[in-house]
Amino acid sequence: MIQYKSVIVMKKNKFLTIYNDLSLQIRQGVFQPNDLLPSEHELSQQYKTSRETIRKALNLLSEHGYIQKIKGKGSVVLDVSKYDFPVSGLVSFKELTQQMEKRVRTIVHELQLVKPDDDIRQYLEASAKDEIWKVVRAREIEGEKIILDKDFLHRKFVPLLTREICENSIYEYLENELKLKISFAKKEMFVDKVTDEDRKYLDVGGYEHIVVVQNYVYLEDASLFQFTESRHRLDKFRFVDFARRTH
């Protein structure tokens, strides 16, 4: 019985395996922008599966902005290098950088429990009696500190945080250890003047402005548990989202 179930699961998820393999090849440059992917027939032979399974994998690639399917031509590979740091989506820095193949480091400058000031009480819908984790981290990529993340998390949802957790991945800890179900986020983006804090923790160079992305993050039961402000050096990130109109 166990063996039978595992076979069923493997067949059910085979299109995801193919999607992951093809998307990885596109990100790694095996297929370049404007290249054509092999035909459905060629892919079905390569992966030893049905054309219907291949079609599901290609549809997923299309939905996520990896390819454009053109009638009479095939599946054209799109330029995905712009999508490494999307504004939309809810993923951790660790998850994003795992796809970048660059040297990255997280530097924790501050980790403490604080009483929320007026701004944080408003952002997190907290009371003056609540305790809030404050985490300030610089993100270094290829030797340059170019992102400053300032996280504020309700202690009632996150009883404990350590420097080691913050250096690795807070979301990985929340989901795998605390079993919290992070569901959705509201985001705001704007350009702000560089602050003394930015200059202290980032390699801002001669820039006078910085891109700010604010996140209000909710659990599955719609509880607001985290407010994050990410401050990005202007020249290093283009915030690009991929959208496809449905008919």
Rank of each mutant, 00 (worst) to 15 (best):
Y4Q: 13
V7D: 02
V7P: 00
V9L: 07
F15C: 13
I18W: 01
Y19D: 04
D21F: 04
S23C: 11
L24C: 10
I26K: 08
Q32I: 03
N34H: 08
N34E: 12
L36V: 02
P38H: 00
E42L: 08
S44K: 08
S44L: 11
Y47L: 05
Y47W: 00
T53N: 04
T53W: 01
K56D: 09
L58H: 04
N59G: 11
L60T: 03
E63Q: 11
Y66N: 08
I67H: 01
I67D: 00
G72R: 05
G74F: 00
V77T: 06
L78M: 08
V80I: 15
V80Q: 05
D84A: 08
S88V: 09
L90E: 06
Q98S: 14
R105A: 15
V108Q: 05
E110G: 05
L111W: 13
L111T: 10
L111N: 14
D117F: 02
D117V: 01
D119C: 01
Q122G: 01
E125S: 10
A126C: 05
K129F: 09
W133F: 01
W133K: 06
K134G: 02
V136W: 11
I146M: 14
I147M: 15
L148A: 08
L148D: 13
D149A: 15
L153Y: 08
K156R: 11
V158R: 05
T162K: 10
T162Y: 10
I170Q: 02
Y173V: 09
E177M: 08
E177D: 14
L178Q: 12
L180D: 04
K187A: 01
V191A: 01
V191W: 04
D192Y: 03
K193D: 10
E197T: 15
E197A: 09
D198P: 08
Y201S: 06
V204D: 03
G206K: 06
G206Y: 08
Q214F: 02
N215S: 13
L219E: 06
L219H: 12
E220M: 10
S223E: 09
E229S: 14
S230D: 04
S230N: 12
D235G: 10
F239M: 13
A243C: 11
R245L: 14
H247G: 05
